[in-house]
Structure formats: structure tokens, C-alpha cells
Design a protein around this nucleic acid. Structure first.
Length: 435
RNA sequence: GGAGAGGUGGCCGAGCGGCUUAAGGCAGCUGUCUUGAAAACAGCCGAGGCGACGAGUCUCCGUGGGUUCAAAUCCCACCCUCUCCGCCA
């Protein structure tokens, strides 16, 4: 949420930002409502002051006969106040609704561009592997090894689901444990195991609602929603709180499953595990002092990059342009890993700084050391990393000629020292004993 | 899900129609004292809106309605927490 004061005082700046974002928001309606609301408030508050004075006078007037006309007079005032209050509240409610639909403004350093074709590759690390054989895409490798089960998972849950099997499941679990340990030990994060079901209010807090209702899963019993990312429960952990300046920065990392209903991706990436309604992810979230958020943003990108460096996977950083910026982000850099089999770059992390946009929605503040008013914190988050695509890149990068997979050094301890992933025993009911 | 108790400022906790400008305490800040600190003492110390982040004024005691000239206080609904019971991984 933007500061209403900013919209009021610099409407042109906001409008031109919307042009750069290639989107629209009802700025003029907001300005009109704001003017109307303030006029109503001035009026009704004067009446309330009058009523408060009158009520005090009633209380001081002990004589019943003198008292009654005062009360009669105030009763009329009360009706006027109720009427104006109602109007002011209606304006206020509508204004708050509209304000929630205005996206964050892009940071000045974000390149202007209409869509994702104008994103900029700003760095590339690592070397793409060269194979002495024809490398395979992960779905072929996985099928041959028996580490991913597609058909049975579809039977269980429908399209866009899969199940990891045997060493496939263990590999993902190893990655999760290793990533969490890395963030905790090397990057100073506190690990959280948050709820996967959240209230609607939490989704408003981080900005998924009201705009992206269609891409969320909502429960039919009760009013819970499945989280699309751990960002939601982690950020809302401090909703409506005033933190001490000394508590900042706060770093949290969490592993969760994530649930996303991508309405318009039907038919895209149907093979493999690149896209599904449920996937696992390790997330990093930061709550920082506004003065530190630029530094923390760079650090966040480094922390996500560390994962890929240590796994030995080639990757690149993509600076997102204005037209491709998400609703809540002021700046965003994606990490893309090289999938050596399918030969494509896969987004495995999205690192974003929201400045005070989310904090304002979720009302997360801190008390500055120099005894001022509470201020909004800055929030940042990034994937560290999304599991399915990391698994894809790993399988394709470390595939050997015989179709088995070499386990990267850093993960071996998490797999009981195992150095390769080979063919798994077949799934299915036990064979009947041969007669 | 059932029964009971309760939700008050950063924290604890009183108040149960107008004397509340929400007592008192803790934490915090400032000052006195001290080489410094601690202790003691004195003062300050919730959030938000409107307004020029002035004067002033309004709102906020879980949330939303209602009664009243006037609501933290009375009424209704809901949410949450705790205790016990039921169910359950």
C-alpha cells in the first residue's frame, strides 16, 4: 500500500510510475474520495466536539428541569453526527479498498520496459557443462531412474501433480535440510516452521489479495487459504506489531509447500516438474530498518546465489524491468539456473524489496531509537530456493552417461554419504511369489 | 463440538454509564547525584486521523453492530486465549 499522503501530494509522480509499470489504478477516484473524506471529517468532528461539550454540561446541570432541554437539543446533534459518520465511513471504506489496488512504485534504478522481454541479464556465473553424450531432460532421466511418479500422482490428485520416489524424495529432502542449515549457520536466519493455511487478512497483508484471488487455493470449510509462498505466514508473523529498533534486522527462513493455481498456464510446461499446483520451497524473509534495505537487498541476492554456487550450478541474475515487476515489489531480481538437459534457464528464485509497501499493509512498525513516532519497517524476501527447478537443474547438470546422477559434494552428508543416484526398485504391489 | 473464565497502552494490571485527561507498576527516555555505573529522587513516556507532523480537535480499551445527551463500562453477534470434557495425528 502506498502512503495516501504521497498520492495526494505527488499524483503526477504516481501516475507516471503506473505508466512505466504498464498498468492502471484509480488515482483520480482516490484523490476525489480523499478530498471528500477530509471535508466530512472536518464537519463531523466539529459537531462531535460540540456534543462532547454539551454532554459535559448535561452532567454538570443537576436540576432536572434545566437538564431536559439540553438533552433534547443534543439528540438532534446526535442524528446529524450519525448521518455524517456514515458518509465518512463509506468514503473511508471505499478509499481503503481502492488504495489496496494500487501497486508499489518501482525503484528509480529499475529499467523501464513494457514486459519481460526488457528484463536485463546483469550477471552470469559458473560454466555450462559440456557432455560427451547427448544430455537428457529431467523427465526422461527421472522416468528411467524411477525417481518421479507422474501417472499415479495424477490418479491421486489430478493434473499438475507428481510424486517423488525413493532417492528422488530423499534428494529433495536433503536439499531442503541443507538450504535451511546454510541460511541459519552462514546467513544468520532463524528457522520457522509456519502454518500452511492462513486467513484472508494475511493474504491482504502481503499483497496477494485482493488482486490475485484467482491464483490462490481457498478452503471451503472455514475461511482459510493455502499459502502460495512462505512469504505470507512469515511476513504476517509481525502484523500489527511495533518492534524495538534493537530487534532489527529480523531474518527468517522457512521450508513450506506452496500452492498456486496458475489459471493461464494450462498446456505450458506439461512435461516434468517445472510447473505444478503444489511445490516445495525454502524462503527467506527480512524485516529491516529503512536505511538498511538497499544493502539488505544486495545481500539477499547473494544469499540465494550462494546456494547455486555451492551446488556448482551455472546461473544468471535477471534484473526485472518495470513492466514485469510484481504488484508489491519496488525492485526485483530473479535467479535463473541453467537446465543442461532441456537447455533452458529456469527461474529458481525471485528476490524482491518491497520497501514499506507490505509493512504498511500489514502494519508492521518499529520504534526508532531516537524517540520518534513509530515507522514502518522495510520487508524483503527471496526464494532460497524453489525445490522442483533446483532438482531439475541438478539432475540435468549432474547426469552421467549411464543415466545415473552424481550427487554434489555438499549434499552427500545429507544423503548418508551417497555419491550417486541410480535406478530405484519399481513401485507397485509386491510380486506374487512364483510357484 | 460442549461447559466455564477471560481479552484494557511496549509489557503487567485496575476500572464495570458522566469526577477517565484509562489508576498503579514494569520497561524506556531526560535530569539531579556519581570519576563512571548502580541505587535513590524528580520529570517525561500509547496509537491513528483531520490540521501546517502549530494551536486545536476527533477516534481507538478483541472485532462488528446496537442502546444513550454521554459507553472501556449496558445489550446482541462474531473472533481469539485459558481451564475442564469430548474427538483426534
Amino acid at each position: 500500500m502506498l502512503d495516501l499522503r504521497l498520492i495526494r501530494e505527488q499524483p503526477q509522480r504516481v501516475k507516471s510510475a503506473l505508466v512505466a509499470l504498464n498498468t492502471d489504478a484509480p488515482i483520480d477516484e482516490i484523490l476525489a474520495l480523499d478530498t471528500r473524506r477530509r471535508a466530512l471529517l472536518t464537519e463531523v468532528e466539529a459537531l462531535k466536539a460540540e456534543r462532547n461539550e454539551g454532554s459535559k454540561l448535561v452532567n454538570r446541570t443537576k436540576d432536572a428541569a434545566a437538564r431536559q432541554p439540553l438533552i433534547d437539543n443534543l439528540r438532534g446533534l446526535g442524528d446529524q453526527i450519525a448521518h455524517l459518520d456514515q458518509q465518512a465511513k463509506a468514503a473511508d471504506t471505499r478509499l481503503a479498498e481502492l488504495l489496496l489496488t494500487v501497486p508499489n512504485l518501482p525503484a528509480p534504478e529499475v529499467p523501464v520496459g513494457p514486459d519481460e522481454s526488457h528484463n536485463v541479464v546483469v550477471a552470469e556465473e559458473g560454466t555450462k557443462p559440456s557432455f560427451a553424450f547427448a544430455p537428457k531432460p529431467h523427465w526422461e532421466l527421472a522416468e528411467a531412474l524411477g525417481i518421479i511418479e507422474f501417472e499415479r500422482a495424477t490418479k491421486v490428485s489430478g493434473a499438475r501433480f507428481y510424486a517423488l520416489v525413493g532417492d528422488g524424495a530423499r534428494l529433495q529432502r536433503a536439499l531442503i535440510a541443507w538450504m535451511l542449515d546454510l541460511h541459519r549457520e552462514r546467513h544468520g536466519y532463524t528457522e520457522i516452521a509456519p502454518p500452511y493455511l492462513v486467513t484472508e487478512q494475511s493474504l491482504f497483508g502481503t499483497g496477494q489479495l485482493p488482486k490475485f484471488r484467482d491464483t490462490q487455493f481457498q478452503t471451503t470449510a472455514g475461511d482459510h487459504w493455502l499459502i502460495p509462498t512462505a512469504e505470507v505466514p512469515l511476513t504476517n508473523l509481525y502484523r500489527d506489531e511495533i518492534l524495538d529498533a534493537a530487534q532489527l534486522p529480523i531474518y527468517h527462513t522457512a521450508y513450506t509447500a506452496c500452492f498456486r493455481r496458475e489459471q493461464f498456464s494450462g498446456g505450458r510446461d506439461v512435461r516434468g516438474i517445472k510447473r505444478s499446483y503444489q511445490f516445495d520451497k525454502v524462503e527467506m524473509v527480512k524485516f529491516v530498518h529503512p536505511d538498511e534495505s538497499a544493502t539488505e537487498f544486495r545481500r539477499l541476492i547473494e544469499e540465494a546465489s550462494d546456494i547455486l554456487r555451492l551446488l556448482g550450478l551455472p546461473f544468471r541474475l535477471l534484473q526485472i524491468c518495470t513492466g514485469d515487476l510484481s504488484f508489491t515489489a519496488a525492485n526485483k531480481v530473479d535467479l535463473e539456473v541453467w537446465a543442461a538437459g532441456a537447455e533452458e534457464w529456469l527461474e529458481v528464485s525471485s528476490c524482491a524489496t518491497f520497501l514499506d509497501f507490505q509493512a504498511r499493509r500489514a502494519n508492521i512498525r518499529f520504534r526508532p531509537a531516537d524517540v520518534g513516532r513509530p515507522q514502518f519497517v522495510h520487508t524483503l524476501n527471496g526464494s532460497g530456493l524453489a525445490l522442483p527447478r533446483t532438482v531439475i537443474a541438478l539432475l540435468e547438470h549432474y547426469q552421467l552417461e549411464d543415466g545415473t546422477i552424481a550427487v554434489p559434494e555438499v549434499l552427500r552428508a545429507y544423503l548418508g554419504g551417497q555419491e550417486t543416484i541410480g535406478v530405484q526398485p519399481p513401485l507397485g504391489p509386491p510380486r506374487p511369489p512364483s510357484a
